[in-house]
């Protein structure tokens, strides 16, 4: 790429942060964001012109978010520490405004969480997601749909999906 790297940060910073937070949680997601853009900055001069930069960044973000979670798991004291991603959601809310979206996403089963992060927040198509999370594109699509359905139940909404 011969484009200034700042363009990639300005255009895709928000998307990358959402993907990182959906996979790794609010705070660890910030570390994953920094790791993502540092790795991208390193690789930027060698990136082929014409690459879909957003999809490239979302793929790096997914890997970095997993790395950050693993690093935390290695550091964690084994007793009494529940990883953020597995924390059960306490109760339901009648009115979704009080519920932090990242907390609700964190309560999803792992595969659903990753598929929601990559597809609905990161914009990746399901065949590319399958290559990242394993299994078939159809299974990834099902996990994404199940994840969204679960979020709808939490927030008490039933409207149809747009995209």
């Amino acid at each position: 790429m011969v484009e200034p790297f700042e363009h990639a940060v300005a255009r895709h910073g928000a998307t990358v942060l959402r993907v990182c937070r959906a996979v790794a949680g609010r705070t660890d997601g910030e570390d994953a964001w920094s790791e993502t853009f540092l790795a991208a900055l390193r690789a930027w001069p060698d990136l082929e012109p014409g690459t879909n930069v957003e999809a490239w960044l979302v793929t790096i973000a997914h890997r970095k978010a997993i790395d950050v979670l693993r690093a935390r798991a290695r550091r964690a004291v084994p007793v009494g520490d529940v990883p953020e991603g597995a924390r059960p959601l306490v109760g339901r809310v009648e009115d979704g405004r009080d519920l932090d979206l990242w907390q609700a996403v964190a309560a999803l089963p792992t595969k659903q969480r990753h598929c929601v992060a990559l597809h609905h927040l990161g914009g990746l198509p399901y065949d590319e997601i399958a290559a990242l999370v394993g299994g078939s594109a159809a299974a990834a699509r099902r996990a994404g749909a199940d994840g969204i359905a679960a979020l709808r139940r939490i927030y008490g909404t039933t409207e149809g999906e747009h995209a």
Partner: peptide, 23 residues
């Protein structure tokens, strides 16, 4: 300054929008 997206293109209607974070 480049425009940034505020709503992910595939985010379903009816769910709360992901917060627009200060980067």
């Amino acid at each position: 300054e480049i425009e940034r997206d505020t709503v992910p293109s595939r985010w379903p209607s009816g769910l709360p929008l992901p917060p627009d974070e200060d980067l």
